[in-house]
């Protein structure tokens, strides 16, 4: 398989970037997209050039570290799929593939296709936890949680923190990410004591980090590898209004 890659190259956060074109042969349909980049990088090394830097780790869709824009879409042409799960059989022989980093003010480019998503970590720090020290827990079955509640909580807890929702949003909003974490904990009885504090702390941080506002275009839920629905955002907003009105 032969592919022309147009890849964004940028030395560092403060350098100018540009697209560079690489014609690459010897790919197969069974290769994952990241293996195709590996293949390209090996050829670059042999030519004495610097490799294309891209983030990746588990390569099975769960760690959330990979993520680039491929032909104008976060994580590539399929819905609900991470970059590492994308395979070359999704492309045609001879196709040109445009690869660029996630573009969002809150995700500055570190190098080439690598961006800085630590803003997500800082949102988490503002309340995505239950304040209880190790060693203070009661017997697990003392808290009964209906199956539906646990299942609904799990639906949103499944967020992998990849940032595709932000990258694809025209406002670069982090509402899907933030709501998923808030709802995971605020749905559960264990999350109740800090429910309000968590909601306000995390949504405030979202604004501080310069993420945009959500205008419900639902672009995010199409890309989300964990298939988190925008109803999660609606739920967060409802909780927010309730918290503001009733404390």
């Amino acid at each position: 398989m032969k592919i022309t890659f147009k890849i964004w190259r940028q030395e560092g956060a403060n350098s100018e970037g540009s697209f560079k074109t690489y014609d690459i042969d010897g790919l197969t349909e069974d290769m994952s997209f990241l293996e195709a980049l590996d293949h390209l990088n090996e050829r670059l090394v042999l030519k004495g050039e610097k490799v294309v830097a891209f983030d990746h780790d588990c390569r099975e869709g769960i760690c959330g570290q990979c993520g680039v824009f491929i032909n104008g879409r976060a994580h590539g042409p399929h819905d609900h799929m991470t970059t590492c799960q994308l395979h070359m059989r999704s492309f045609k022989d001879g196709e040109t593939i445009v690869v660029e980093p996630y573009r969002a003010g809150a995700f500055p480019v570190v190098k080439d296709l690598v961006v800085d998503r630590t803003a997500f970590d800082r949102i988490i720090e503002q309340g995505a936890y239950i304040t209880a020290k190790t060693g203070t827990a009661a017997e697990a079955n003392a808290i009964l949680i209906p199956k539906e509640v646990a299942d609904n909580s799990m639906d949103v807890a499944a967020c992998i923190g990849c940032g595709a929702c932000v990258a694809t949003c025209k406002n670069a909003s982090a509402a899907l990410f933030t709501s998923a974490k808030i709802n995971h904990l605020n749905k559960l009885p264990q999350g109740q004591p800090e429910a309000h504090r968590r909601l306000v702390g995390m949504t405030d941080q979202m604004a501080i980090e310069n993420f945009g506002s959500c205008t419900f275009t639902a672009a995010c839920e199409v890309e989300c590898p964990a298939e988190i629905s925008i109803s999660s955002i609606a739920e967060m907003n409802a909780r927010y209004v309730k918290a503001k009105l009733f404390g």
Binding site: Y129, I130, A132, T134, G135, T136, A137, A138, E139, A140, N141, I143, L144, I145, P146, K147, V149, A150, D151, S153, M154, A157, H184, L185, L188, Q190, G191
Partner: peptide, 22 residues
Amino acid sequence: APLIDHFVQQGVPFAREYGGVL
């Protein structure tokens, strides 16, 4: 056993039976 208690306390959404037990 205490580890499961700990993770439940931390909000891990473990699979549950309809009656609410783990």
